[in-house]
Design a protein around this nucleic acid. Structure first.
Lengths: 188, 188
DNA sequence: TTTGGCATTTGACTTAAGTCAAATAATTAG
DNA sequence: CTAATTATTTGACTTAAGTCAAATGCCAAA
């Protein structure tokens, strides 16, 4: 996964000036306050959000309960993927859980500039591959680890981030109840 | 998801003859007997397998138990994705569960011809998007459905599954024990 | 600095699904 | 066709995690 991020960075480093400008031309800086929504469930996701600062999460409602699907930090890309790709209403919300600054990239404009900038379609592919690998990893962890071990792994992989996030979100991200998470924490 | 498959097909229909030939030049028909392996755990996945005929599955071992990650049918693409993308040893086996015929596409050759055939990188992107959406859907189903409903959904979406596939594989694909699956089946 | 509202923990109980063992049923090989 | 093997079902019991309710901790605004 890390290796793949390096590939992505290497590609971006090698962008020619034109490509860089094109990308800038379709990007727009936006700011959201803690608690505000970058995307609502039911909306079609028409842009991707490159996190410049702060933390966001993706989640959906199931049975009046929130299921957090992803936690996104500085230099992550927040998108309601299926909605973005297939132009269908999003099942997910995207919400700022701290004040955030994002670089908002319009989807249609990005599609347009991809035509003339081969590096950009490569970037798109690499990012999508990265996301698919991340999803595979997440599925794998749900199948092979119990609540305790999933929490331990999260601590291991994202130690500092976890500090700033309410346990409710972490529990729902780990797919366990808040109470179970609380109990897990005492056992570590 | 269906809409996305249509996009993929539309793209393939519109391939120019050169692209088509290039693709053929890196493809090679192979046959496997029931039970044989297209890929072993630990191998680096250096090709993708387009299923022409038959059924395969992807699975890994966890605690001496098999976890089936994907069942693949005619016109599906079987790849150990993370291994393929990041050149790391595969955690997964790919196994023929009936006699199968596949069109085996060499990864490096495919990467080479992508350079000169822009349609092919578009194809790559669309296929990867499709896989990522499928993974999202699978995660969603694990989080929102219990054993009974996951089985019902499988019956609904892939009725032909059940006919040709031993229950052990179906159970491990649904993430439940064989016994639970057996009990679920009586309750339908 | 107090108060009201979240966030977290703790306790008692329930439940979905797993495990282990054994009994049938269905295929396959000889 | 029959034995052997493999697949599936059934039963009794266990367990990880969920639920509901209450207690405690913690911060932020008045």
């Amino acid at each position: 996964m890390k290796r793949h991020l390096k590939k992505i960075n290497a590609l971006i480093e090698n962008f020619d000036v034109e490509t860089e400008l094109a990308l800038q031309s379709v990007s727009k800086t936006k700011k959201y306050k803690k608690g505000e929504f970058l995307l609502y469930q039911g909306e079609i996701c028409k842009s991707s959000f490159w996190i410049e600062e702060g933390i966001t999460r993706k989640y959906y409602m199931n049975d009046k309960k929130e299921v957090t699907t992803e936690l996104l930090f500085k230099h992550d890309l927040a998108v309601a993927f299926s909605s973005y790709v297939s132009n269908q209403p999003s099942l997910e919300f995207i919400q700022a859980i701290t004040d955030v600054t994002v670089s908002c990239i319009d989807k249609n404009s990005f599609r347009n500039i991809k035509e003339n900038h081969p590096h950009l379609i490569q970037l798109d592919l690499l990012m999508t591959e990265y996301y698919a690998m991340w999803l595979e990893k997440r599925l794998f962890e749900f199948h092979t680890l119990n609540a305790i071990d999933r929490y331990k792994l999260l601590l291991l992989e994202q130690p500092d981030f976890i500090r700033h996030i309410p346990l409710t979100y972490i529990a729902s991200y780990l797919g366990i109840s808040l109470e179970t998470l609380s109990r897990v924490r005492t056992k570590i």
